[in-house]
Nucleic acid binder design. Structure first.
Lengths: 345, 345
DNA sequence: GTGAAAGCGCTAACAG
DNA sequence: CTGTTAGCGCTTTCAC
């Protein structure tokens, strides 16, 4: 990949080595129309011999970069790994590479900077996971760069959407707990003060769905929300708050597994047993739920299907599709040992 | 950031808008030497007014990309998040952006592709976290792109190294367990069949250190290794294997927290208590260790310091430093409730 | 089917 | 201190 004089091998080196024009090499590289088999073989041989790889930045000046940018709020949630892995797998076949940038968690300014960084690097497409900026901003970006938004509930004619049916997911959990006999079911949610409309955020959908199902079962009076965050600390703090109420809940539904782990810690610390005294459920079905000391009831939302679909949609966009599509996965409940009937009395 | 006709705003637009040359704009952008204050103000006004952002790919053709590439084996380990966050924080002040690519975990081919992707995108510097390719390959890459390697124990005059003193870390754990009275202490390690020399890998260093300390205390006969992987599944499988031995260990030291969580699950499933029947210790001091149902004894290796240092070293390299440096953090033991004296008898 | 040449947006000499 | 100009490596007309 370097010439005798230490320079990087360029398309010109390949061309002169194969005794053809740079145009011909370029065409072979891109499988473009109009190259004879003989030419293809000759050029490919030169490419292999010199170990040539196209210079992505130079490509970016004219055509594609063969790069898909992924915006993640952070890389702490293993659930994101499922999404990214499936995406990478899906696009690699077409010669695409995924690059990841971290947005600022819940800070819209930092998120915007991260997205701009991708746009400035001329990614051919972008997957934005649970972004918090406004729909208007996303559309502005989507007009310039093919975009898939994952995990938001607002609709747009500009970008594609991939999401989990959080309404159903939350419903599954609450119905499950009610079915076990629980009435005092609490919920831990996340409240960000972000530009995006609350109804567009998955945490809002989960919380509203929780409230709705409670009300439908005549349990509106037992609605108890702890508004912290989808993190271990958030789950821990929220639980301490909920346990201090009188009477305390017999079940806690955390909006995310990470928060549920914090719930387990707080419940345990309070000298209470799971599920003997308190049932606990999470959301995401991350690997640790199965592994946890007390295996955790959770909602599976098939991150692999979401990531794979996002990849496919982006490739389609690069291919030229301009209409927006919306893909929703239906979650399923995975009941484990952390939920059981409430204690008698 | 787009002109009336939908084109992206370029340096030429800014120049004509401010009635100056593109050179002047370029100099202002880069804080280069030789611009009057008046010029700076005028150009900056035009930049702000037009919402101009430099085109990273175009920059890459001539000078810097202001991009640092980070290679991660995968994004499942939250410990990596500490490193990346600290790195991003450190370099953002200098106007740098971090982009992350996933190597193939333990697959050297995929890892090499991921690294090449960064090089092809002209990153100004690269942080390779726990790479598994050979030192020779790393040096080849390091000659072309400023490189910091994190978590490897081999030395190189070409790239910088940032690492945890895994020898000390493992020693702390084993001494701690021996101090509590344990003799049958088992260790769960990871064995990859990778191009890198085993001695260069942190898991080997931890395992060798475990064996050494055991031997030093006359416990060579009690050395028990389960060779699986640093993952929940690896910890789980390794533990089932260890518990089947006769007599079974009274303590299990997992080489990574993720594996330790699998240990907890397997121990629990076997109807044994932690730490009543079996003490468990991990490595990494990830946040969940404090939160876990049974809070986990672990080794803290200050990922933030490592990430921050990696960022600083990379900026120094970009600035022109060519000599290689090596930075090692000294780990500390964080004893929690998962370790206690062995059961009597 | 093939190649010559223009040009993407920027930076780095170099002149003025 | 400021501007003119060449050219980075590639893709894309457009001749041949």
């Amino acid at each position: 990949m370097v010439t005798r004089d230490g320079r990087r091998v360029t398309i010109t080196d390949v061309a002169s080595h194969a005794q053809v024009s740079t145009t011909a090499v370029s065409k072979v590289l891109r499988n473009a129309y109009g190259v004879s088999e003989a030419m293809r073989v000759k050029v490919q041989a030169a490419i292999d011999e010199l170990g040539y790889r196209p210079h992505a930045a130079a490509r970016a000046m004219r055509g594609r970069t063969f790069t898909i940018g992924v915006l993640l709020p952070h890389i702490r949630n293993p659930f994101f790994a499922d999404i990214v892995e499936a995406l990478a797998e899906q696009i690699s076949g077409a010669g695409y590479q995924a690059i990841i940038v971290q947005g600022g968690g819940t800070d819209p300014k930092a998120e915007r900077r991260a997205i701009d960084a991708l746009v400035d690097r001329q990614v051919d497409g972008m997957l934005a996971v649970a972004p918090v900026i406004t729909r208007k901003e996303l559309e502005e970006i989507g007009r310039g760069t093919p975009t898939v938004v994952l995990g938001r509930h607002d609709r747009s004619p500009v970008y594609d959407s991939v999401l989990d049916d959080d309404e159903v997911g939350a419903e599954l959990v609450v119905e499950h707990l009610i079915g076990l006999g629980h009435r005092r079911i609490a919920h831990i949610t996340q409240n960000d003060n972000v530009p995006a409309r609350p109804a567009a955020l998955l945490q809002t959908v989960r919380a509203r769905s929780y409230e709705r199902v409670m009300a439908e079962h005549g349990l509106a009076g037992h609605i108890a929300l702890a508004v912290t965050s989808y993190s271990e600390e958030g789950g821990y703090e929220g639980t301490r708050e909920l346990l201090a109420r009188e009477p305390r809940p017999t079940a806690i539904f955390a909006g995310a597994d990470q928060a549920a782990f914090g719930v387990l810690a707080a419940v345990n610390e309070a000298g209470l047993a799971v599920p003997g005294d308190i049932s606990v459920a999470g959301y995401d079905n991350s690997r640790l739920t199965a592994m946890a000391h007390v295996s955790l009831t959770s909602v599976d939302q098939d991150g692999a299907a979401m990531g794979q679909t996002a990849g496919r949609l982006l490739l389609e966009r690069v291919q030229g599709r301009t209409s927006a599509v919306r893909f929703s996965v239906t979650p399923t409940l995975v009941a484990r040992r952390s939920t059981a009937p409430p204690p008698a009395g």
